[in-house]
Design a binder for these strands. Structure first.
Lengths: 206, 206
DNA sequence: CTGCGCTGTTACCTCCGGTAACATGGCGGC
DNA sequence: GCCGCCATGTTACCGGAGGTAACAGCGCAG
Protein backbone atom coordinates (compact mmCIF):
# COMPACT_ATOMS: atom_id res chain seq x y z
CA UNK A 1 0.00 0.00 0.00
CA UNK A 2 1.48 3.22 1.18
CA UNK A 3 4.41 1.37 2.73
CA UNK A 4 6.85 1.59 -0.14
CA UNK A 5 9.95 -0.04 1.35
CA UNK A 6 12.22 2.52 -0.31
CA UNK A 7 10.22 5.55 0.72
CA UNK A 8 8.98 4.56 4.10
CA UNK A 9 12.15 4.93 6.21
CA UNK A 10 12.63 8.57 5.14
CA UNK A 11 9.00 9.20 5.85
CA UNK A 12 9.56 7.94 9.35
CA UNK A 13 12.53 10.23 9.83
CA UNK A 14 10.55 13.19 8.62
CA UNK A 15 7.69 12.32 10.90
CA UNK A 16 10.11 12.04 13.79
CA UNK A 17 11.37 15.52 13.06
CA UNK A 18 7.83 16.84 12.79
CA UNK A 19 7.05 15.16 16.05
CA UNK A 20 9.92 16.89 17.79
CA UNK A 21 8.89 20.27 16.46
CA UNK A 22 5.28 19.81 17.43
CA UNK A 23 6.34 18.64 20.85
CA UNK A 24 8.34 21.81 21.23
CA UNK A 25 6.25 24.45 19.47
CA UNK A 26 2.74 23.08 19.59
CA UNK A 27 0.46 22.08 16.75
CA UNK A 28 0.80 25.32 14.80
CA UNK A 29 4.42 24.67 13.88
CA UNK A 30 5.19 25.81 10.36
CA UNK A 31 6.29 23.64 7.51
CA UNK A 32 9.53 25.60 7.30
CA UNK A 33 10.23 24.86 10.94
CA UNK A 34 9.60 21.17 10.45
CA UNK A 35 11.75 21.07 7.33
CA UNK A 36 14.54 22.86 9.15
CA UNK A 37 14.32 20.45 12.05
CA UNK A 38 14.66 17.60 9.59
CA UNK A 39 17.68 19.35 8.07
CA UNK A 40 16.06 19.75 4.67
CA UNK A 41 13.77 22.12 2.78
CA UNK A 42 10.07 22.31 2.20
CA UNK A 43 9.52 20.63 -1.16
CA UNK A 44 10.63 17.31 0.22
CA UNK A 45 7.96 17.44 2.84
CA UNK A 46 5.41 18.18 0.17
CA UNK A 47 6.60 15.30 -1.95
CA UNK A 48 6.07 12.93 0.91
CA UNK A 49 2.87 14.24 2.37
CA UNK A 50 1.17 16.26 -0.33
CA UNK A 51 0.21 19.16 1.83
CA UNK A 52 0.16 20.26 5.41
CA UNK A 53 -2.95 18.30 6.21
CA UNK A 54 -1.22 15.23 4.87
CA UNK A 55 1.70 15.72 7.19
CA UNK A 56 -0.41 16.46 10.21
CA UNK A 57 -2.67 13.60 9.26
CA UNK A 58 0.20 11.15 9.09
CA UNK A 59 1.51 12.51 12.35
CA UNK A 60 -1.79 12.13 14.11
CA UNK A 61 -2.40 8.67 12.76
CA UNK A 62 0.73 7.56 14.51
CA UNK A 63 -0.50 8.64 17.89
CA UNK A 64 -4.16 8.05 17.27
CA UNK A 65 -3.52 4.38 16.95
CA UNK A 66 -2.22 4.16 20.48
CA UNK A 67 -4.88 6.28 22.08
CA UNK A 68 -7.65 4.60 20.20
CA UNK A 69 -6.42 1.14 21.02
CA UNK A 70 -6.14 2.06 24.67
CA UNK A 71 -9.65 3.47 24.77
CA UNK A 72 -11.08 0.54 22.88
CA UNK A 73 -9.45 -1.92 25.21
CA UNK A 74 -10.75 -0.03 28.19
CA UNK A 75 -14.24 -0.06 26.75
CA UNK A 76 -14.16 -3.82 26.58
CA UNK A 77 -12.71 -4.58 29.97
CA UNK A 78 -14.76 -7.18 31.77
CA UNK A 79 -15.77 -4.96 34.67
CA UNK A 80 -18.89 -3.64 36.29
CA UNK A 81 -20.29 -0.91 34.11
CA UNK A 82 -19.34 1.89 36.44
CA UNK A 83 -15.82 0.55 36.84
CA UNK A 84 -15.48 0.19 33.11
CA UNK A 85 -16.52 3.77 32.52
CA UNK A 86 -14.13 5.00 35.15
CA UNK A 87 -11.39 2.99 33.57
CA UNK A 88 -12.02 4.53 30.17
CA UNK A 89 -11.99 8.01 31.65
CA UNK A 90 -8.79 7.30 33.48
CA UNK A 91 -7.10 5.96 30.38
CA UNK A 92 -7.99 9.06 28.42
CA UNK A 93 -6.92 11.50 31.08
CA UNK A 94 -3.68 9.63 31.65
CA UNK A 95 -2.95 9.85 27.95
CA UNK A 96 -3.46 13.57 27.61
CA UNK A 97 -1.56 14.07 30.83
CA UNK A 98 1.48 12.19 29.67
CA UNK A 99 2.08 14.16 26.47
CA UNK A 100 -0.08 17.24 26.37
CA UNK A 101 1.32 18.77 23.19
CA UNK A 102 0.82 15.61 21.22
CA UNK A 103 -2.71 15.15 22.39
CA UNK A 104 -3.48 18.76 21.77
CA UNK A 105 -2.51 18.04 18.22
CA UNK A 106 -4.87 15.09 18.17
CA UNK A 107 -7.75 16.82 19.82
CA UNK A 108 -7.60 20.34 18.41
CA UNK A 109 -7.51 20.24 14.63
CA UNK A 110 -5.89 23.46 13.58
CA UNK A 111 -7.12 25.67 10.87
CA UNK A 112 -9.11 25.94 7.70
CA UNK A 113 -9.58 22.30 6.87
CA UNK A 114 -12.29 22.09 4.25
CA UNK A 115 -13.02 18.56 5.44
CA UNK A 116 -16.18 19.07 7.40
CA UNK A 117 -14.97 22.40 8.69
CA UNK A 118 -16.16 23.73 11.96
CA UNK A 119 -16.40 20.37 13.62
CA UNK A 120 -16.03 20.21 17.34
CA UNK A 121 -14.40 16.81 17.07
CA UNK A 122 -11.09 16.15 15.40
CA UNK A 123 -10.73 12.92 13.41
CA UNK A 124 -9.09 11.12 16.27
CA UNK A 125 -11.93 12.11 18.51
CA UNK A 126 -14.53 11.11 15.99
CA UNK A 127 -13.02 7.69 16.01
CA UNK A 128 -13.25 7.60 19.75
CA UNK A 129 -16.83 8.77 19.58
CA UNK A 130 -17.61 5.95 17.20
CA UNK A 131 -15.93 3.51 19.49
CA UNK A 132 -18.06 4.66 22.40
CA UNK A 133 -21.15 4.48 20.24
CA UNK A 134 -20.34 0.92 19.32
CA UNK A 135 -19.66 -0.06 22.89
CA UNK A 136 -22.97 1.36 24.05
CA UNK A 137 -24.83 -0.39 21.30
CA UNK A 138 -23.25 -3.71 22.06
CA UNK A 139 -23.37 -3.59 25.80
CA UNK A 140 -26.47 -1.71 26.84
CA UNK A 141 -30.13 -2.28 26.16
CA UNK A 142 -31.74 1.05 25.27
CA UNK A 143 -34.81 -0.27 23.51
CA UNK A 144 -35.98 1.19 20.25
CA UNK A 145 -34.11 4.43 20.81
CA UNK A 146 -30.83 2.59 20.96
CA UNK A 147 -29.33 3.69 17.66
CA UNK A 148 -30.08 7.36 18.08
CA UNK A 149 -29.16 7.49 21.73
CA UNK A 150 -25.91 5.64 21.35
CA UNK A 151 -24.79 7.85 18.49
CA UNK A 152 -25.76 11.00 20.31
CA UNK A 153 -24.17 9.87 23.51
CA UNK A 154 -20.98 8.79 21.80
CA UNK A 155 -20.45 12.31 20.51
CA UNK A 156 -21.68 13.90 23.69
CA UNK A 157 -19.47 11.94 26.01
CA UNK A 158 -16.48 12.56 23.80
CA UNK A 159 -17.11 16.29 23.80
CA UNK A 160 -17.70 16.26 27.51
CA UNK A 161 -14.46 14.50 28.26
CA UNK A 162 -12.59 16.66 25.79
CA UNK A 163 -13.72 19.88 27.44
CA UNK A 164 -13.24 18.55 30.93
CA UNK A 165 -9.83 17.15 30.08
CA UNK A 166 -8.65 20.43 28.60
CA UNK A 167 -9.79 22.33 31.62
CA UNK A 168 -8.20 19.82 33.95
CA UNK A 169 -4.88 19.98 32.12
CA UNK A 170 -4.86 23.74 32.32
CA UNK A 171 -5.90 24.31 35.87
CA UNK A 172 -5.15 21.01 37.56
CA UNK A 173 -7.89 21.51 40.10
CA UNK A 174 -7.60 18.01 41.49
CA UNK A 175 -5.83 14.69 41.08
CA UNK A 176 -6.76 12.50 38.18
CA UNK A 177 -8.71 9.97 40.19
CA UNK A 178 -10.97 12.64 41.56
CA UNK A 179 -11.59 13.98 38.09
CA UNK A 180 -12.56 10.51 36.99
CA UNK A 181 -15.05 10.34 39.83
CA UNK A 182 -16.52 13.73 39.01
CA UNK A 183 -17.10 12.75 35.40
CA UNK A 184 -18.48 9.34 36.20
CA UNK A 185 -20.79 10.91 38.76
CA UNK A 186 -22.11 13.23 36.11
CA UNK A 187 -22.80 10.34 33.77
CA UNK A 188 -24.41 8.46 36.60
CA UNK A 189 -27.04 11.12 37.02
CA UNK A 190 -25.83 12.59 40.26
CA UNK A 191 -26.86 15.96 38.89
CA UNK A 192 -30.44 14.79 38.80
CA UNK A 193 -30.35 12.88 42.05
CA UNK A 194 -28.94 15.53 44.34
CA UNK A 195 -31.21 17.52 46.61
CA UNK A 196 -32.44 21.01 45.89
CA UNK A 197 -30.89 23.94 47.63
CA UNK A 198 -33.28 26.50 49.09
CA UNK A 199 -33.88 29.32 46.62
CA UNK A 200 -31.55 32.26 47.09
CA UNK A 201 -32.60 35.31 48.95
CA UNK A 202 -32.14 38.58 47.12
CA UNK A 203 -28.62 38.33 45.76
CA UNK A 204 -26.17 40.17 48.05
CA UNK A 205 -25.10 42.92 45.69
CA UNK A 206 -21.58 41.55 45.14
CA UNK B 1 -15.20 53.82 27.98
CA UNK B 2 -14.90 52.17 24.62
CA UNK B 3 -18.04 53.93 23.46
CA UNK B 4 -16.51 57.07 22.03
CA UNK B 5 -19.56 58.86 20.59
CA UNK B 6 -17.62 59.96 17.51
CA UNK B 7 -16.05 56.61 16.78
CA UNK B 8 -18.77 54.25 17.79
CA UNK B 9 -21.24 54.60 14.89
CA UNK B 10 -18.58 53.74 12.31
CA UNK B 11 -17.55 50.82 14.44
CA UNK B 12 -21.10 49.58 14.30
CA UNK B 13 -21.20 49.89 10.54
CA UNK B 14 -17.97 48.00 10.21
CA UNK B 15 -19.22 45.30 12.50
CA UNK B 16 -22.38 45.03 10.45
CA UNK B 17 -20.31 44.50 7.35
CA UNK B 18 -18.16 41.93 9.11
CA UNK B 19 -21.30 40.22 10.26
CA UNK B 20 -22.64 39.95 6.73
CA UNK B 21 -19.39 38.50 5.46
CA UNK B 22 -19.16 35.98 8.25
CA UNK B 23 -22.75 35.02 7.69
CA UNK B 24 -21.95 34.39 4.06
CA UNK B 25 -18.43 32.96 4.12
CA UNK B 26 -18.07 31.50 7.55
CA UNK B 27 -15.72 32.43 10.37
CA UNK B 28 -12.54 32.25 8.31
CA UNK B 29 -13.43 35.30 6.22
CA UNK B 30 -10.39 37.41 5.45
CA UNK B 31 -9.82 40.96 6.55
CA UNK B 32 -9.70 42.03 2.92
CA UNK B 33 -13.09 40.53 2.30
CA UNK B 34 -14.57 42.29 5.29
CA UNK B 35 -13.01 45.58 4.30
CA UNK B 36 -14.35 45.18 0.78
CA UNK B 37 -17.82 44.41 2.08
CA UNK B 38 -17.68 47.59 4.12
CA UNK B 39 -16.60 49.47 1.01
CA UNK B 40 -13.25 50.45 2.47
CA UNK B 41 -9.72 49.11 2.84
CA UNK B 42 -7.88 47.24 5.51
CA UNK B 43 -6.07 49.90 7.53
CA UNK B 44 -9.36 51.34 8.72
CA UNK B 45 -10.34 48.02 10.18
CA UNK B 46 -7.04 47.84 11.96
CA UNK B 47 -7.45 51.34 13.33
CA UNK B 48 -10.75 50.37 14.86
CA UNK B 49 -10.03 46.90 16.09
CA UNK B 50 -6.28 46.61 16.42
CA UNK B 51 -5.97 43.22 14.83
CA UNK B 52 -8.06 40.35 13.58
CA UNK B 53 -8.68 39.00 17.04
CA UNK B 54 -9.96 42.41 18.04
CA UNK B 55 -12.44 42.39 15.21
CA UNK B 56 -13.78 38.94 15.72
CA UNK B 57 -13.73 39.58 19.44
CA UNK B 58 -15.96 42.60 19.03
CA UNK B 59 -18.11 40.63 16.65
CA UNK B 60 -18.53 37.74 19.03
CA UNK B 61 -19.28 39.96 21.98
CA UNK B 62 -22.28 41.24 20.12
CA UNK B 63 -23.82 37.84 19.71
CA UNK B 64 -22.50 36.38 22.89
CA UNK B 65 -24.60 38.78 24.85
CA UNK B 66 -27.78 37.41 23.34
CA UNK B 67 -26.90 33.76 23.65
CA UNK B 68 -25.59 34.16 27.15
CA UNK B 69 -28.64 36.06 28.30
CA UNK B 70 -30.92 33.44 26.83
CA UNK B 71 -29.04 30.60 28.51
CA UNK B 72 -28.89 32.42 31.79
CA UNK B 73 -32.60 33.12 31.73
CA UNK B 74 -33.30 29.48 30.93
CA UNK B 75 -31.10 28.38 33.80
CA UNK B 76 -33.21 30.40 36.20
CA UNK B 77 -36.65 29.45 34.98
CA UNK B 78 -38.86 28.36 37.85
CA UNK B 79 -39.37 24.81 36.63
CA UNK B 80 -38.82 21.30 37.80
CA UNK B 81 -35.14 20.53 37.47
CA UNK B 82 -35.56 18.20 34.55
CA UNK B 83 -37.76 20.68 32.72
CA UNK B 84 -35.30 23.44 33.39
CA UNK B 85 -32.44 21.44 31.97
CA UNK B 86 -34.46 20.55 28.92
CA UNK B 87 -35.33 24.16 28.47
CA UNK B 88 -31.68 25.21 28.57
CA UNK B 89 -30.76 22.56 26.04
CA UNK B 90 -33.58 23.62 23.78
CA UNK B 91 -32.59 27.26 23.96
CA UNK B 92 -29.04 26.46 22.99
CA UNK B 93 -29.95 24.17 20.13
CA UNK B 94 -32.50 26.64 18.83
CA UNK B 95 -29.84 29.34 18.83
CA UNK B 96 -27.27 27.40 16.86
CA UNK B 97 -29.99 26.21 14.54
CA UNK B 98 -31.22 29.67 13.72
CA UNK B 99 -27.88 31.12 12.61
CA UNK B 100 -25.31 28.37 12.25
CA UNK B 101 -22.52 30.47 10.81
CA UNK B 102 -22.71 33.02 13.58
CA UNK B 103 -22.69 30.42 16.27
CA UNK B 104 -19.90 28.58 14.61
CA UNK B 105 -17.97 31.77 15.00
CA UNK B 106 -18.87 31.89 18.67
CA UNK B 107 -18.17 28.27 19.39
CA UNK B 108 -15.16 27.52 17.23
CA UNK B 109 -12.41 30.04 17.89
CA UNK B 110 -10.31 30.02 14.79
CA UNK B 111 -6.62 29.57 14.78
CA UNK B 112 -3.42 30.62 16.44
CA UNK B 113 -4.59 32.75 19.30
CA UNK B 114 -1.81 32.68 21.85
CA UNK B 115 -4.38 33.55 24.49
CA UNK B 116 -4.79 30.25 26.26
CA UNK B 117 -4.25 28.42 23.02
CA UNK B 118 -5.59 24.96 22.52
CA UNK B 119 -8.67 25.44 24.59
CA UNK B 120 -11.66 23.34 23.76
CA UNK B 121 -13.96 26.14 24.82
CA UNK B 122 -14.18 29.51 23.11
CA UNK B 123 -14.68 32.58 25.28
CA UNK B 124 -18.41 32.61 24.70
CA UNK B 125 -18.58 29.00 25.76
CA UNK B 126 -16.45 29.61 28.78
CA UNK B 127 -18.94 32.17 29.89
CA UNK B 128 -21.72 29.68 29.41
CA UNK B 129 -19.77 27.11 31.36
CA UNK B 130 -19.39 29.58 34.20
CA UNK B 131 -23.08 30.29 34.08
CA UNK B 132 -23.87 26.62 34.38
CA UNK B 133 -21.39 26.27 37.20
CA UNK B 134 -23.03 29.11 39.07
CA UNK B 135 -26.49 27.69 38.53
CA UNK B 136 -25.46 24.30 39.85
CA UNK B 137 -23.83 25.84 42.88
CA UNK B 138 -26.86 27.92 43.68
CA UNK B 139 -29.53 25.39 43.01
CA UNK B 140 -28.19 21.99 43.90
CA UNK B 141 -26.84 20.55 47.11
CA UNK B 142 -23.73 18.54 46.34
CA UNK B 143 -22.19 18.54 49.79
CA UNK B 144 -18.54 19.21 50.31
CA UNK B 145 -17.67 18.34 46.74
CA UNK B 146 -19.91 21.09 45.46
CA UNK B 147 -17.29 23.54 44.22
CA UNK B 148 -15.20 21.02 42.36
CA UNK B 149 -18.16 19.15 40.93
CA UNK B 150 -19.99 22.22 39.77
CA UNK B 151 -16.93 23.61 38.05
CA UNK B 152 -16.12 20.32 36.41
CA UNK B 153 -19.69 19.75 35.38
CA UNK B 154 -20.07 23.25 34.01
CA UNK B 155 -17.22 22.65 31.59
CA UNK B 156 -18.26 19.08 30.91
CA UNK B 157 -21.85 19.86 30.09
CA UNK B 158 -20.79 22.73 27.87
CA UNK B 159 -18.42 20.51 25.95
CA UNK B 160 -21.00 17.79 25.72
CA UNK B 161 -23.65 20.08 24.31
CA UNK B 162 -21.15 21.70 21.97
CA UNK B 163 -20.14 18.39 20.44
CA UNK B 164 -23.66 17.09 20.32
CA UNK B 165 -24.95 20.31 18.83
CA UNK B 166 -22.32 20.35 16.12
CA UNK B 167 -23.10 16.80 15.19
CA UNK B 168 -26.80 17.47 15.20
CA UNK B 169 -26.44 20.52 12.96
CA UNK B 170 -24.37 18.54 10.49
CA UNK B 171 -26.34 15.36 10.24
CA UNK B 172 -29.77 16.35 11.53
CA UNK B 173 -30.48 12.87 12.76
CA UNK B 174 -33.67 13.86 14.54
CA UNK B 175 -35.87 16.82 15.44
CA UNK B 176 -34.70 19.21 18.07
CA UNK B 177 -37.04 18.03 20.76
CA UNK B 178 -35.76 14.50 20.46
CA UNK B 179 -32.19 15.71 20.71
CA UNK B 180 -33.08 17.57 23.87
CA UNK B 181 -34.51 14.37 25.29
CA UNK B 182 -31.44 12.36 24.37
CA UNK B 183 -29.12 14.82 26.09
CA UNK B 184 -31.28 15.18 29.17
CA UNK B 185 -31.52 11.41 29.40
CA UNK B 186 -27.75 11.20 29.37
CA UNK B 187 -27.49 13.74 32.17
CA UNK B 188 -30.18 11.87 34.06
CA UNK B 189 -28.08 8.77 34.22
CA UNK B 190 -30.02 6.67 31.77
CA UNK B 191 -26.69 5.29 30.64
CA UNK B 192 -26.16 3.81 34.06
CA UNK B 193 -29.73 2.72 34.63
CA UNK B 194 -30.32 0.77 31.45
CA UNK B 195 -30.12 -2.99 31.44
CA UNK B 196 -27.14 -4.96 30.26
CA UNK B 197 -27.21 -6.63 26.90
CA UNK B 198 -26.00 -10.23 26.75
CA UNK B 199 -22.32 -10.35 25.86
CA UNK B 200 -21.62 -10.77 22.18
CA UNK B 201 -20.77 -14.07 20.67
CA UNK B 202 -17.51 -14.27 18.84
CA UNK B 203 -17.48 -11.27 16.55
CA UNK B 204 -18.52 -12.24 13.00
CA UNK B 205 -15.27 -11.58 11.24
CA UNK B 206 -16.41 -8.38 9.52
C1' DC C 1 -6.77 80.47 9.04
C1' DT C 2 -4.65 77.07 11.52
C1' DG C 3 -4.25 72.90 13.70
C1' DC C 4 -6.23 68.50 15.25
C1' DG C 5 -8.51 64.17 14.68
C1' DC C 6 -10.94 61.12 12.02
C1' DT C 7 -11.63 59.34 7.34
C1' DG C 8 -9.68 57.21 3.70
C1' DT C 9 -5.99 55.84 0.31
C1' DT C 10 -1.64 53.27 -2.00
C1' DA C 11 2.10 50.73 -1.35
C1' DC C 12 4.67 47.95 1.14
C1' DC C 13 6.66 44.15 4.63
C1' DT C 14 6.70 39.45 6.49
C1' DC C 15 5.42 34.96 6.78
C1' DC C 16 2.88 31.02 5.36
C1' DG C 17 1.37 27.07 2.35
C1' DG C 18 2.48 25.39 -1.97
C1' DT C 19 4.93 24.73 -6.70
C1' DA C 20 8.22 24.70 -10.78
C1' DA C 21 12.55 23.75 -12.51
C1' DC C 22 16.68 22.06 -12.12
C1' DA C 23 20.88 19.23 -10.07
C1' DT C 24 22.73 14.92 -7.85
C1' DG C 25 23.53 10.20 -6.76
C1' DG C 26 22.74 5.11 -6.05
C1' DC C 27 21.14 0.93 -8.27
C1' DG C 28 19.10 -2.55 -11.35
C1' DG C 29 18.74 -4.05 -16.41
C1' DC C 30 21.02 -4.63 -20.84
C1' DG D 1 30.39 -0.75 -18.52
C1' DC D 2 26.86 2.05 -19.46
C1' DC D 3 22.10 3.86 -19.23
C1' DG D 4 18.04 5.29 -17.43
C1' DC D 5 15.13 5.41 -13.37
C1' DC D 6 13.75 7.31 -9.27
C1' DA D 7 14.16 9.32 -4.92
C1' DT D 8 16.86 12.87 -3.01
C1' DG D 9 17.92 17.45 -2.63
C1' DT D 10 18.31 22.45 -4.03
C1' DT D 11 16.92 27.68 -5.24
C1' DA D 12 13.60 30.62 -6.55
C1' DC D 13 9.27 31.82 -7.03
C1' DC D 14 3.77 32.62 -6.54
C1' DG D 15 -0.51 34.14 -4.27
C1' DG D 16 -2.69 35.43 -0.33
C1' DA D 17 -2.89 36.04 4.51
C1' DG D 18 -2.23 39.54 8.58
C1' DG D 19 -0.33 43.87 9.51
C1' DT D 20 1.98 48.61 8.96
C1' DA D 21 3.89 53.06 7.11
C1' DA D 22 3.18 57.32 4.91
C1' DC D 23 0.50 60.32 2.88
C1' DA D 24 -4.12 62.96 1.38
C1' DG D 25 -8.77 65.16 2.31
C1' DC D 26 -12.18 66.86 5.36
C1' DG D 27 -14.82 69.09 9.27
C1' DC D 28 -14.70 71.60 13.05
C1' DA D 29 -12.86 74.00 17.38
C1' DG D 30 -10.04 77.97 18.67
Amino acid sequence: MTTDPRTEPRREQLLNAADRVVQREGPSASMNAIAAEAGITKPILYRHFGDRNGLIGALTERHTAGLLAAVRAALNEPLERRDRVEHVLDVYLAAIESRPQVYRLLTHPEPGDPTGAGNALAPALRQIAEEITRAIQQQIDLGRDGPLLSETWGRSITGMVLAAGDWWLETRPCPRARMVQALADLLWGRLSAAADLPPMLAAPEA
